[in-house]
Amino acid sequence: MDPYDVEGGAINVRFLQADSTRANFLIQNFDLATANALRRVMLAEIPTLAIDVVEVFDNTSVLADEFICHRLGLIPLNAKNVDEALLYSRDCECDGYCENCSVTLTLNARCTSDGVMKVYARDLVVSGGRPNDEIGTPVIKDPEGLGSVIVKLNKGQSVHMKCIAKKGIAKEHAKWAPSAAIGFEYDPNNKLRHLDYWYEEDPKKEWPVDETNANIDGVPQEGEAFDYDAAPTRFFFDVETVGGMEPDTIVQQGIRVLQQKLANVIQELQGGEDIDMGGFGGQSPQMNGGGYGDPTAGSFSAYGGNASVWGGGATPYGATPYGQQPPSNW
C-alpha cells in the first residue's frame, strides 16, 4: 500500500513544508483539471491590496512621476482580510475612493544632507483610517526593516505623494498577485508519459527530476507494463507568498474563489427553471454553514468561519461522499 496515502480514496492533503512564507504540499486523489484550475485561480484571481492611484504633490527627484508611481504600485502591501474588509472601489458608493474601499498611504521625504538619500518602502505611512491595523502596511522582510528602495534623492530634492491602495485581482494587473510563484507538478517520474523530452544521449542524466517529489510518487519498476488508463491523482504544490497574505490564506482563498465561480454558474443554470430552494440554500444570509460538523473548519482563518460560498448551510454538500476526515497524525 502507498505509505503516503493513508486515507484510501478520499481527497487529502499532505504537507512537506509549512512556514510563514511557503506552503509545500501535495493533494492526493484529486484530478488534474481541478488542480490546474486551483493553480490558475491562486495565480490570478485572489483579491489583494496594491497602490492604484497616486497624487503627486511634489517630485523633484530625477525620476519621472509615472516612473515612481509604477514602482509604488509594485510594492507588496499587507492584505489581511481584504476579501471582507474592503469593497472593490468600483462597487463602492463613494466618488473615487473612501475608507470603505481603499487605504491611504503617504510618502513624504526630503533630502537635506550632502550625499544620496534612499527612500524605502518603510517610509510609506498609512494615513487615515483602515479596517484593521495590519492592512496596507508595506511588507518588509529584510533584517534591517527597510523594504525595497523607491527612489534616491540628492541634496535639496524631495518627493511628496498620496497613494491610494485599492483592492484588485492579478488578472487586472500583476501587482495584485498574492503569490510570488506557484510550483506545480504531477507524475515526477513521467510514468504516464504525458511528456516526451528531447535528449542528446540519456534522458535520465539530462532531465533531472525533483528527488523528493519523485520518491513520494513512487519510483517506477524496471520493465513495468504501461497502464494506458492511468490518470494522475497526486499533485505537488509549492505556494510562496509575496508577503501580503499567509500562504495558507492564499490556498484557502483560492478554493473559495473557485467555488464562488462555480456557484455563479450553477445559479445561472438554475435560473431558467423555476427556482426550487430545496436544492441549495440559495441566497440565505445564514453564515457559518451549519451543515458542516467539522469543528476544526469553523475555528479557522480570517474569512469568517466555514460559511460555504453558497451562504446557506443546508446544501447537499453538507454530507460529502467522503464523510468527515479524521485528523491524521502524519
Binding site: A10, I11, N12, V13, R14, F15, Q17, A18, A23, F25, I27, F30, T34, L38, D248, V251, Q252, I255, R256, L258, Q259, L262, A263, V265, I266, L269, Q270, Y292, D294, T296, A297, F300, S301, N306, S308, V309, P316, Y317, T320, P321, Y322, Q325, P327, S328, W330
Partner: peptide, 26 residues
C-alpha cells in the same frame, strides 16, 4: 453541467477541510 459544477464544489470543500487540519498540524 450543473451536476458537474456541484461535484467540483463538493470536492473543493473536502480539500479545504483537509488542508486546514494538515496545515495546523504541520
Amino acid at each position: 453541467v450543473k451536476k458537474c459544477c456541484e461535484d467540483v464544489v463538493a470536492d473543493l470543500e473536502v480539500l479545504s477541510r483537509s488542508f486546514t487540519t494538515e496545515w495546523l498540524g504541520k
